[in-house]
C-alpha cells in the first residue's frame, strides 16, 4: 500500500500524475545545453523504470513518465551522473534533483551557434542557476541572445535580452549602406547617412547588432562590454496573461544577478503566505505591493553604472479575465 508525502515528492522533482501509482521524473537542463553522453542515461531510466517515452519540456528539460513511485530511489541513483555533469546545485548527493518554485533557467542557443546572439546565453544561465537554486519561490528566468527573443524572455518574470553597443570606426566605412538596409528592414531603422557616413540614433537603437553582422569592413564592431535589456513580470495563466515590460536597458550581468537576488528578498517579505502551496507569482505580488516598492527592494545596493536606463513607473497591460 503506497503511503506518500506528495509535498516531498514534488520537492524531489517528481510529478504527482493523473495515473494512480505512477510519477514522472523531471530533469532540468540549465541553459538548455547538455553533452550527448547524458542522453543514454536518460534513455536507460525511461526504458528501465519509465514507459519508454520522454517528454521534452517547455523550459528545456526532460520529463520521464510512467515511473512507479517505489522506484524513485533507484531513479535518483541513476540521475546522479546527470546532476554531476550539469553541475546542478544539489542539496543531498545521491538523492536526485531538488525542485520547488524556481523553474529551470532556460536559454536560447546563443552565441555558441547563432549568428544573431550578442552573448553566451548558456553561460549566463548556468551562472544564474548557481545563484538562485534551489529555491521554493516561484521564479521564471530566461536568457535570449538578441531582440528576436526566441526563448520568449517576455513571458518570464525576468527576461534577459542580449544587446551590444555598436562601435563605429568611420575611417573603415565605405558607405555600402548594408547596415542601413539591415537596420531598416530587420530592426528599428535607427541609422541614417550624413555626408556618406552613418549616424546612429542612440534613442532608437535596440542594440541588436544587425549593423555589426552586416558590415563588410569592420567599421561596425561590438562593444567590449556586454549589455542587456532586463524585462520583467511577463506571465501566462488564468487571470492576467501579459508580456514582460522593460525595466532596465543597457544594463550589465552583475546588476541583473543582484536584482534577481534582491527580488527573492522582496518576495519573502510580501508573499501571501496563505496562497495555495505557499506559492504566489511575483507579478501578482508586485501588482499588490506596487511597482515603486518592488523597485526600492530590487535596486537596493545596486550600482547601475552610467549607461543603464531605468524605466518606470512600469505598467503592464495584457488580458484581464479577473
Amino acid at each position: 500500500m503506497l503511503d506518500l508525502n506528495t509535498k516531498k515528492i514534488k520537492k524531489n522533482a517528481y510529478r504527482v500524475t493523473k495515473v494512480r501509482g505512477e510519477t514522472a521524473s523531471r530533469i532540468r537542463v540549465p541553459g538548455g545545453l547538455l553533452t550527448a553522453d547524458i542522453l543514454p542515461i536518460i534513455q536507460n531510466i525511461a526504458e528501465t523504470y519509465g514507459n519508454g517515452r520522454i517528454h521534452l519540456t517547455t523550459r528545456q528539460g526532460f520529463e520521464i513518465p510512467g515511473i512507479r513511485y517505489e522506484d524513485m530511489d533507484a531513479v535518483n541513483a541513476l540521475l546522479q551522473p546527470i546532476i554531476d555533469k550539469l553541475d546542478i546545485n544539489q542539496e543531498i548527493p545521491g538523492k536526485g534533483y531538488t525542485a520547488a518554485g524556481t523553474r529551470n533557467v532556460s536559454a536560447c542557443i546563443g552565441s555558441n551557434v547563432c549568428p544573431f546572439a550578442n552573448y553566451n546565453t548558456t553561460d549566463f544561465a548556468k551562472k544564474m542557476e548557481k545563484e538562485i537554486f534551489p529555491n521554493d519561490l516561484h521564479f521564471k528566468v530566461a536568457f535570449t541572445g538578441c531582440a528576436n527573443d526566441c526563448i520568449k524572455a517576455r513571458m518570464q518574470d525576468f527576461g534577459i535580452i542580449g544587446m551590444t553597443e555598436p562601435q563605429y570606426e568611420k575611417e573603415r566605412c565605405v558607405n555600402c549602406q548594408a547596415c542601413v538596409k539591415a537596420c531598416k528592414k530587420k530592426s528599428v531603422d535607427a541609422l541614417t547617412v550624413e555626408n556618406y557616413r552613418i549616424v546612429r540614433n542612440t534613442e532608437k537603437c535596440v542594440g541588436c547588432g544587425e549593423c555589426v553582422i552586416n558590415c563588410p569592413t569592420r567599421a561596425w564592431t561590438r562593444s567590449t562590454e556586454k549589455y542587456y535589456r532586463l524585462v520583467i513580470m511577463g506571465r501566462t495563466g488564468k487571470r492576467n496573461p501579459r508580456l514582460a515590460e522593460d525595466f532596465l536597458v543597457w544594463t550589465t550581468e552583475d546588476v541583473i544577478i543582484k536584482i534577481i537576488n534582491n527580488t527573492y528578498k522582496f518576495v519573502e517579505n510580501y508573499i501571501d503566505r496563505s496562497a495555495p502551496g505557499g506559492k504566489e507569482h511575483i507579478g501578482y505580488i508586485i501588482d499588490r505591493a506596487g511597482f515603486s516598492e518592488f523597485k526600492k527592494w530590487a535596486l537596493d545596493g545596486v550600482d547601475l553604472g552610467d549607461k543603464t536606463i531605468v524605466k518606470g513607473p512600469v505598467y503592464w497591460s495584457g488580458l484581464h479575465y479577473d
Binding site: 552565441s111 546572439a117 550578442n118 552573448y119 547588432g209 553582422i213 569592420r218 561590438r222 567590449t224
Partner: peptide, 15 residues
C-alpha cells in the same frame, strides 16, 4: 588579432 571584433559575438578578426 582584434579580440571580439568579428562579425559575430566572441569572434576575433585578424586584420
Amino acid at each position: 588579432r582584434y579580440v571580439g571584433d568579428g562579425t559575430f559575438a566572441h569572434v576575433d578578426t585578424i586584420r
